[in-house]
């Protein structure tokens, strides 16, 4: 329960923090930390406007997107606190639930018959497919390293014998990069862009409104917190006192969010056709990590 509570709590904070950091970096004061939450609250109280082309998919799938992500968040390790659902091979279900929510987002984009949305969907589908191996190779490497079998045990055991902060940092680096792709942040996608032709995630939700849009925005926030929590579990040792871990966890999440905010302020996005190279590079770094693990285990 603590694990779930922590993830949900941090998911509420991070979105506002990113916006705030970006504002400060560009010399403005920026909106309050809770502005994204207020926006979602407004969305819930607005009615929905549907495209006349759209059908039952648009009306139901944003809900499925969020519920799949919620179930996925139950498996995520949170700095040594046992997640609610943890079993042998749960990372497979975790990854596939992510894929399910992506599938649902893609078909939602197509439901309105808009070319803009379909364009974003096409990119989302391709990038999502290319980034999946990076996560799996990383987890396979950690499995070999720790002998753990579920997300929680893998990340906890990383801190046992032979642990070095180098591992934690590499894992955090890889997951951080995966987050940039999965959450459609700069340099892959600019969430604040205003040109439909260059959007990825934001363009897929152009025809969603009210309740549905709130669902999708909550999903993005939750997804960000999930990846942040993976990073936190990679760097926070599991055997510290619970209070220390909780505070460290929140600190890491906030630090991660501000780091993303800083990156977005000082980095430009890639040309659309360079994204594939960037994503494949992440996978290759993952493979490199795997090879390093093999060396440390004397498997060569």
């Amino acid at each position: 329960m603590i694990a779930l509570g922590l993830i949900l709590l941090t998911s509420l904070l991070t979105a506002g923090l990113i916006v705030r950091v970006k504002s400060i970096a560009s010399g403005r004061r920026g909106p309050g930390l809770f502005q994204p939450l207020k926006n979602i609250w407004v969305l819930f109280r607005k009615g929905s406007v549907y495209s006349e082309v759209s059908g039952v998919i648009t009306r139901t799938s944003p809900i499925m997107v969020l519920s799949a992500l919620l179930v996925a968040s139950l498996m995520v390790p949170v700095a040594g606190f046992t997640p609610l659902i943890s079993f042998r091979g749960d990372f497979i279900m975790f990854a596939y639930l992510m894929a399910f929510s992506r599938f649902m987002m893609i078909i939602t984009a197509f439901d309105s018959g808009s070319s803009f949305e379909a364009m974003g969907a096409s990119r989302e589908a391709l990038y999502g497919m290319l980034i999946e191996p990076a996560l799996f190779v990383l987890i396979a490497g950690l499995t070999v390293f720790t002998g753990g079998t579920s997300l929680a045990t893998i990340f906890d055991l990383t801190h046992r014998e032979g642990y070095s902060y180098v591992f934690g940092l590499i894992v955090a680096y890889i997951i951080g990069n995966i987050t940039l792709v999965e959450n459609s942040r700069i340099p892959v996608d600019d969430p604040k862009t205003h040109l439909e032709l260059t959007m990825i995630h934001e363009v897929m939700v152009l025809d969603l409104s009210g309740f549905n849009l709130a669902m999708v925005q909550m999903t993005s926030m939750l997804k960000f917190a999930i990846f942040g929590s993976l990073i936190a579990s990679a760097v926070i040792p599991w055997d510290m006192a619970p209070a220390t871990r909780i505070s460290m966890f929140i600190a890491v999440q906030l630090l991660f969010a501000s780091a993303i905010g800083m990156t977005e302020s000082f980095r430009s996005r890639y040309k659309m056709n360079r994204n594939q190279q960037y994503i494949l590079t992440i996978s290759l770094i993952s493979v490199l990590f795997f090879v390093i693990i093999l060396f440390t285990k004397n498997i060569f």
Binding site: Y50, S51, F211
Partner: peptide, 27 residues
């Protein structure tokens, strides 16, 4: 997952009764 989805769907139906959705052109 299915029950969370069903719960949200009920919430949405309740919401839609209060604020009936309208249709418009695709963006």
């Amino acid at each position: 997952m299915v029950s969370i989805g069903a719960l949200f769907l009920i919430l949405k139906k309740v919401d839609e009764r209060r604020r009936p959705p309208v249709t418009g052109l695709t963006w």
